[in-house]
Amino acid sequence: MSTIKFTPPVVKRDEEVRREEKVPDQDELEGKQIATETVKGNTDAPPPPDLNGLEGGTGSEPVKEVVENKVYTYVEQMPVFPGGNDALLAAIQKNTKYPPLALRNQVEGKVFITFVVGPDGAVSGVTVQKGIGSGCDEAAVAAVKTLPRFTPGKQNGRAVSVSFTVPVTFAIK
């Protein structure tokens, strides 16, 4: 429960007190003329632009949306691989062929691959973000390029390109 504090009155001289105008009652305003003269507007305003020669719209077409063709890193609705993220990693691992050079040299580790899922769900722009060499980088890129189409990501209700980064693990069994 809130409490209301008492504010003490301030004593001032008559000269220091501002007189507040009293708002007239409805009865006082009845029958009175509101304005006695026409007030002129701003005459310093520039003249309106010349619109001759411009085409007018028909009024039946909707306003066209400005579409940016940029690659997003995160969107309202992210792209979905058929089966989810676990299925995505499993599909990459299944299609990854361990390079003979890496097997001979006992090379193990993770290769981070960046790719773009386009508005049509297709995988493109496959690049190595962080590699381990010995042919593993190329094998990981080849595996990611074989992925099927994703359900595309959406931003503001429209399909857009989204960047993805996935780890590809190379381990000798």
Rank of each mutant, 00 (worst) to 15 (best):
M1Q: 12
L51K: 14
M1G: 15
E37Y: 03
V116T: 10
T43C: 06
V168Y: 04
D14Y: 13
I92A: 01
G57C: 03
D44F: 10
N105Y: 05
R149I: 02
T7D: 13
T96P: 10
D14S: 13
K97I: 05
A91E: 08
E15M: 11
R104S: 13
L29K: 02
A140K: 05
S134I: 06
G135V: 04
L89Y: 15
T73I: 03
V144R: 03
I4S: 13
N69K: 15
G59N: 08
Y98I: 02
P48H: 04
P99F: 00
Q77R: 11
K173H: 04
D120G: 09
I92Y: 01
E108R: 07
F115C: 10
V166I: 03
I113R: 08
P167S: 10
V80E: 14
E138P: 00
S161R: 15
P148Y: 05
R149S: 15
G31N: 04
K64T: 11
A45H: 11
G53N: 01
V80P: 07
E61C: 01
G59F: 04
D120A: 11
T96C: 00
A122C: 14
V160M: 06
P167T: 08
F115G: 09
A102K: 03
E37A: 11
L88E: 05
Y74P: 00
V128C: 00
D137V: 01
K130N: 14
V123A: 09
R13E: 15
G56D: 06
S163H: 00
I92M: 05
V168T: 06
F150V: 09
P152I: 06
G109W: 07
E16H: 03
E16D: 11
G131P: 00
R149D: 08
